[in-house]
């Protein structure tokens, strides 16, 4: 698709930031509020779809390479499995960071409370890892589908099919 009208592009300029920030908020606060890595990652990956629709594939692909998202996905999966294996002294996926102090180790009071961001041990680490993985994975799916269907090589160079304007 070629870039859509200036109205769509202006709205995209404004709201893409909010979508990214909201998704990162959902990922980071996964152990305090509803949501988590999967949901927040899906929100951030929606930003890629938004940019692809508003600006077209050539502009987006000149901005960010698929290798970036691929690395993000790999890093997320490796971090997740590493966090699982590090608790291997007790059991697989043992929460070895919770309640020890230090990184993500704050002790939460029992009962209703307003929540401490620096708590929950490996649950926070795994939320961030899964968030990275979902951002990378869903964005890669969108970009590769877009490249496979819309972008093609003609005689003059790389072109796009889709909207007329």
């Amino acid at each position: 698709m070629n870039p859509l009208s200036v109205v769509v592009r202006t709205i995209c300029d404004i709201f893409a930031w909010f979508m990214g920030i909201f998704g990162v908020y959902i990922i980071i606060h996964g152990h305090l509020t509803p949501g988590g890595g999967f949901q927040g990652g899906a929100v951030v990956a929606t930003m890629a779809a938004f940019l692809l629709v508003a600006y077209g594939g050539k502009k987006v692909l000149s901005f960010v390479r698929p290798g970036f998202y691929s690395g993000m996905e790999t890093a997320g999966l490796l971090l997740f499995i590493t966090a699982g294996f590090l608790g291997m002294g007790t059991t697989f996926f043992y929460n070895f960071l919770a309640g020890r102090g230090g990184l993500f180790g704050a002790v939460v009071p029992i009962g209703p409370n307003s929540g401490i961001l620096n708590s929950a041990g490996t649950i926070s680490v795994m939320n961030i890892a899964v968030g990275l993985e979902v951002i990378g994975g869903l964005s890669l799916i969108l970009i590769y589908m877009f490249k496979g269907i819309r972008l093609f090589d003609d005689h003059a160079g790389r072109s796009e099919s889709g909207h007329d304007r």
């Binding site: 041990g121 795994m126 939320n127």
Partner: peptide, 30 residues
């Protein structure tokens, strides 16, 4: 809340007590 020092019990189940299941979900996405 006491064992895993987390307020969100759903997250503690998904990522801790049943963490192996979440690993499978990540593998499905991959």
């Amino acid at each position: 809340q006491q064992e895993r020092s987390v307020n969100n019990v759903v997250t503690s189940i998904v990522f801790d007590y049943r963490g192996f299941d979440t690993l499978g979900e990540a593998a499905v996405l991959f």
